[in-house]
Every structure is written in structure tokens, then in C-alpha cells.
Design a protein around this nucleic acid. Sequence first.
DNA 1: AGCGTCGTCTGAGCAATGCTTAGATTGTGT
DNA 2: ACACAATCTAAGCATTGCTCAGACGACGCT
Lengths: 197, 197
Amino acid sequence: MPTKEQNYHHGALRSALLEAALATVERDGVEALSFRQLARIANVSPGAPYHHFRDKNELLAMLARRGFEALETELERACSAGSDPVNCIHQLVEAYLRFARSSPKLYALLFIPEVTRPESLDVVEPQAMACLRRLQAALAVMDPVAEPPVLRERALTLWGLLHGLVSLLDIGPLTRSLSSVVDTELAARSAMKLALA
Amino acid sequence: MPTKEQNYHHGALRSALLEAALATVERDGVEALSFRQLARIANVSPGAPYHHFRDKNELLAMLARRGFEALETELERACSAGSDPVNCIHQLVEAYLRFARSSPKLYALLFIPEVTRPESLDVVEPQAMACLRRLQAALAVMDPVAEPPVLRERALTLWGLLHGLVSLLDIGPLTRSLSSVVDTELAARSAMKLALA
DNA sequence: AGCGTCGTCTGAGCAATGCTTAGATTGTGT
DNA sequence: ACACAATCTAAGCATTGCTCAGACGACGCT
């Protein structure tokens, strides 16, 4: 009767690696993530992870995919409480900023070059598109007569504004000088201007 | 009489390394950049670069600093042709997108985690702030009665929108599905809405 | 039950990288 | 002329990503 520890076959290595990777990224950022360290955490030899991921970039792509999944569910929950449309957008903005700020290192992972390279996008882009559709749906509720193409344009500019502000002020080059100069309110107001146009 | 090649002292190693690093990043992206490779290009031993940069991150920070400098001069040139204010903003947007798209790998470098970490920001943030001030100045020309704080808010949202769109559509997770769905015109229109509010 | 197959894991190994150190070389200022 | 400081070399250490031959074990088939 094996004690479930130290079996020759780990049994759930893949998810164990993903879990350890997620924790590492949230704590220390992508740059601190190494395949061998993950193997060490999982009590497994350095070559074992390669039976579950082709290379390190594939692991990162999977992490990013999960990140966009989590973002999508947050956006979904924010607007499903069907209050009035304008309040819905407000809650959407709040949910996005809350997600980005609750684990900034993970949020930053979603946009690093290793994840946005073509091979990784095969895995990541579908989930990113799902996020875009979620925004588009919310805008559709607010303006039922608008055509889908313009709704998508509005969703893109909305997402662009939100990501741009987070990228500049929370995790980007202006974090030190201007931290929290732009609060949720400003972002929400600007988002409104874009969404209602 | 030495032939200027293969001197024991290189003479201009620092700038040679920066130049080689810039070329490498523009061609292959940050992930392809290595200190030892730069040393090889400069015909120098692997340890030599460490007399000019504390570590790899410092080299990256210098590159990013130069990137923001280049962006600032582009923004400056765009609006100095003093036409009417609304056209000025349009040219500003065009200049920004042109800069980002002319060397996307270099643009992406400006926002990677290695550059946005606190130590690197000591070097990078001042130049990023200079870019922000440039945008703020352009908006001031367009609306002379606006207060500086609101001008800075507008500059931030403008920059956020531009960077967000570039980050999502040109170098980010939506590049494949939506490349050039949002063209310069859409970005300019949205930027207008924000700037004029 | 016995057997074979296939997916999983090991362990050794290779090339490359970031960074450090001791010492050689050269230019500079007094 | 001489000491000093800056620059460069060469060797080396620890770590990483990735590969490969082979050990191990769960599972299905006869």
C-alpha cells in the first residue's frame, strides 16, 4: 500500500506543475520561473516535465490561457447581476481593474513576448477572443440597436483603454510617479465616453 | 600603428554593445538577446560587458530609456508642424502608431517585466514621464483653458488607449484574429473622443 | 493468469547563459 | 618616470533548457 507520495509515477504531474508554476508567477513573476525548479517542487526528475509540455513556452501559454479564462469569468460575473446598463459597465470596469491588481504578476504574464508569439497564440488567442466577446456582449446590452461590427470596435477600444491604463500605471513605466493617480473612477468615466459614443 | 581593430582596449565598447543589442532586439526580440553573444559581436571576451553594465537588466533598461527617448522625439516632431489643434492630435496618433509598428519588438521591450521592475524604473521612468508631458503639452495647445491636472488625466487616457490598442492588436493576444481591424482612423477617432471630453 | 504495449519517470549529459574573480594590459595624470 | 585607475582577458561556478537511452509500471488483450 503505497503512501501516495514518492510513487514512480506521479499520477498528476501536469496539474501539479501548472499549480506550482501559477504560484511561482504570482509570487515572483515570470522571470523567476524555471522548469527545473518546478520539477524540484513536484519531487520529480528534471526531465519529467517534458513529457507533459513540449517546452517552457508551452507551459507559459497554458498559464496565460488559464489567466484569460479567469478574466473572462470575472467579467461574466460582473455584468450578470442585471442592473441598469450604465451600472453594468461600471461594474465591468471595476472587475477588470480588480483582476489586474489582485495579481499583477500574473496579469503581466498575459502580454509578454513569449506568450504573444504565434505558436503560443494558437493556445491563447481563443480565450482572449472569448474575453473580447464578453465585453462586446455587455456593450450590446447597453445599446441593443448597435450593429455587431461597431460593437466590436467599442469592445476593442474599451479593452484597449483598460489594458493600457493598467499597463502604464499599475505594472508599467509610470508605476512609481503616478501610482493610483488614475483611480477606478477615472477609468470608468473614460470607458463610458468610449462606450456610449 | 594598430589597425584600430583588435586593440586590447576596445575604446567604445559601451556604445558598441548598445548598438548591437538594439539591432538584435529589433530583429529577433528581447528573448534572443544574450550578454555573451553581444560580447562575441563586439570581438570581446565574455566578461568585458560587465565593466559597462552591472547586469543584463541594466542593459535592457538603457535600451528602454533610448526607446522612450526616440518615442518622445517622434511625438515632438508630429505636433510641432503647428496646424490646427484637431489635426495636431491626429498626427500625434499617427506618429505613435507608426513608431510602434515600425519596430514592434523594440516597442514591446518598453513594457516587459524586466524593464518595469523598480531598479530599472530609476533609469526608464524619467523618459517615460517626458513622453507623457509631450502628450500633455499637445492637449494643452488644443484646450488652453483646461487645468493641468485634467490635462494630465487626458494625456494618460490618451496614452493608455493608444498603448492598449497596440498592445492588444499589434503585438498582443489578438494579433492573429484581428490584425488591422482597428486601423489608424479608428484609433484617432477614439482618441478624439477622449481628448475633447 | 500471463504477456506485451504504451505512457510515464529517471539519470546522465550537452550546450549555453549570467555572473564572479584573479590577473594582465593600457591609458592618464602627477 | 611612475603609480594609479580603467579596461579587458581567461578561467571558472552555478544554473538553465532540452535530449536521449533505458527503467518502471499501469492497462488491455488473449
